[in-house]
Simulated scan of single mutants.
Amino acid sequence: MSKAKRLLDILLFANAKRKFTAQEIADEFNISIRTVHRYILDLSDMGLPIYAEQGRNGGYTVLTNRLLPPILFTEEEVVSIFFAFQSLRYYRDLPFDAEIHSAGHKLYSSLQSDAKTKVDKIRSYIAFWNPKRTIDTPFLKDVLEASIEGSHLHIQYESKSGTTTKHIRPLGVYAHDGLWYLPAHDFNKQKVLLYRVDRILAIVSTEKHEEIFMNLEDWFDSYEVKNPIHLHVQLSMEGVRQCKSVPSFEGLIVIKKDGSGYIDAMIDKGELGFITPLFFRLGCHAKILEPAALIENLRTHAEEILTMYRDTPNS
């Protein structure tokens, strides 16, 4: 049997066993103790996180991180993985940022020179751009793990009203427009609310629970208009173009033959605060017909800006 095959077999044995002695390896693979120690050193050099305990009751212990057995990728598959990594490039914080860099380094080191050149070109010629925020989200990985484990959290959260302590059950996290968001069940208000992960100042305590709760995918699928309001907007050709880049509008736009269009749909009243700045940015390229509350929001916003510059002298 080749040394590579023997090392792979010992790696699988050690990874499954977690704690073992050199004698157990020797008996399992019919090799000498001396050969076992040499193979263990080889595996350690390859990255197996293993700890040796000396003495009568000593042996080897594989530390917390489990290693996967070697996986054979084609060069095109490796290039496709770098393509996926490229889509994450513009996010300041990622839940497994260090692990992504480590995996990328290992994959890149294993490539032949021509494949490395192809990967370098991908990095230079394609981007999945998001606004690169300077805001830190130090608890991103913690809230993701709490979501997966079904934990309840007590957090300190910074909002417009100040810093408050909230008791929540996180459903998962998602990224949008360069920021990370956390839908979570708020136990005080007894409903799911949306939080900005960067506004979590501290995780005060964590409580594990076994009850089954919805996850992020369930939450996305369960969206419904609970407080419907009629949205009717006339769009110029430029208005259509810009609205098509907004995910929440994309499926609502009706385009006319001349390229202009309109939105005529029912939305949730709770979305008015979110869509007001979007339509304000569109200016004359979007004329709101309904609802009156949205028109009033836009008028108020415009008057606040006019007031700010009313006494500015002409240049």
Rank of each mutant, 00 (worst) to 15 (best):
F128Q: 11
I168Y: 00
A103H: 11
L201K: 05
Y223L: 15
R123N: 13
S159N: 10
L140C: 04
H154P: 02
L201Y: 00
L179Y: 08
S147K: 07
S109T: 07
A146I: 00
W180K: 01
Q190C: 05
H209R: 12
D221M: 15
L111G: 09
R123I: 05
I155W: 00
K160I: 09
E149H: 01
A175Y: 02
A103Q: 02
L179C: 15
E158F: 04
H230N: 05
F187P: 02
P131M: 11
I212V: 15
I168L: 07
E210A: 13
I200E: 00
H105F: 09
R123T: 10
L231W: 06
W180V: 00
Y181I: 07
D177F: 08
M214R: 14
I122C: 10
Y181W: 02
Q156F: 14
R199S: 06
V204L: 04
L193Q: 11
E238L: 09
Y181D: 00
G162F: 15
G104D: 02
Y125N: 10
S102V: 12
V173E: 03
Y108E: 07
N215W: 03
S102N: 14
L107C: 10
K141R: 13
N188M: 06
P170H: 05
I126A: 10
S102A: 15
S222R: 13
L201N: 04
H152K: 15
E217S: 11
T163V: 14
F213W: 13
I126N: 09
S110K: 05
E145K: 01
L193V: 07
D218M: 14
A103V: 03
R133F: 07
I122E: 13
Y125D: 04
S113E: 14
Y157D: 12
I200M: 01
V197P: 01
E207A: 02
D218K: 11
K141N: 12
W219S: 00
T165K: 13
I126K: 03
L201I: 03
L201M: 13
I126D: 03
E158Y: 10
S236G: 04
H152P: 00
V173P: 02
T117L: 12
L201G: 00
K189P: 03
E210I: 08
K166S: 07
P131D: 11
T134H: 14
V225N: 09
L201F: 01
A175F: 03
S205Y: 02
P138A: 15
S161M: 06
G172F: 01
S222P: 04
Y108L: 14
K191W: 08
Q156T: 12
S222V: 15
E145W: 00
H154Y: 07
L194M: 14
Q190V: 10
Q112G: 14
K121C: 08
L193E: 05
E158Q: 15
K166Q: 04
K121Q: 14
R123Q: 08
V119Y: 01
L153Q: 02
L194R: 02
S124L: 12
D186K: 05
E217F: 07
A127Y: 10
